[in-house]
């Protein structure tokens, strides 16, 4: 068995591009899924009953589906349903966003609910309105609990971007597997893919640990 690791170096530009796409997908998805998650969470907690039910149904649905299926479904079904001719990239982004928004909504909801009701009551007893109490007392505390979870979701999302490779979006996994097919250097390319993800993901995981330690809830 002869191994030729130079193929990895030869194609470093393509791999770098794939990596950049992975990051871009992650950032773009979070940019959508954080505000959207807040909206869904607020609807779920404070909205009128029909919206509350819809928000709950949305969250429960997407938390109970495999992301890879959502990706396929978005790719084949959304163009037909909406009549839009979306690129694979946009479709992948949509699928990721739908998925992560649901998780974020749950994170925000749990974070806000975890603040003892007495906090809001104490604030309102001082004369604050409900929204003031939320903004100045509950949300800042909830953020301390939410931040570590969001960081963890970020890392999961980073890994989940690999799933849009199945609809030929040129992120790192797709690029690596294309190169494998082109060069026939299976072990080298797949190992390089694993190592690259490891190099990117390991520091992120450690950062999440640090964030969790720093925001440790001591109540």
């Amino acid at each position: 068995m002869t191994l030729d690791w130079s193929v990895v170096w030869q194609h470093r530009d393509a791999l770098a591009a794939g990596t950049a796409m992975t990051f871009a997908l992650t950032v773009a998805t979070m940019a959508v899924a954080v505000p959207a998650g807040i909206v869904v969470a607020v609807l779920r907690m404070y909205g009128p009953p029909p919206l509350r039910a819809a928000a709950t149904a949305y969250v429960e649905l997407f938390r109970n589906l495999p992301l890879i299926l959502v990706v396929y479904w978005a790719f084949y079904v959304v163009p037909i349903l909406t009549g839009l001719g979306l690129s694979a990239l946009a479709t992948g982004l949509a699928a990721l966003s739908l998925n992560v928004t649901a998780y974020n909504a749950e994170t925000f909801r749990a974070g806000i609910n975890s603040i003892r009701r007495g906090q809001a009551e104490a604030a309102m007893a001082l004369g604050m309105s409900r929204s003031q109490a939320l903004r100045r007392v509950v949300v800042p505390q909830a953020l301390r609990r939410i931040t570590p979870v969001l960081a963890s979701t970020w890392v999961s999302l980073f890994k989940d971007t690999s799933l849009v490779s199945v609809i030929a979006v040129s992120e790192l996994a797709y690029v690596s597997m294309q190169l494998r097919a082109q060069t026939f250097r299976v072990l080298e390319m797949l190992t390089a893919m694993a190592v690259l993800y490891w190099l990117l993901g390991y520091p992120q995981a450690k950062l999440v640990d640090w964030i969790q330690r720093r925001y440790q809830v001591t109540e």
């Binding site: 996994a173 190992t191 993901g201």
Partner: peptide, 23 residues
């Protein structure tokens, strides 16, 4: 444990099926 947090499942499965037999 930390490595498995860093690497996607897809990558692990693909490597196990295609690369492990070579090794």
């Amino acid at each position: 444990v930390d490595s498995m947090r860093a690497v996607p499942v897809l990558v692990v499965l693909v490597w196990t099926f295609f690369a492990l037999p070579i090794v």
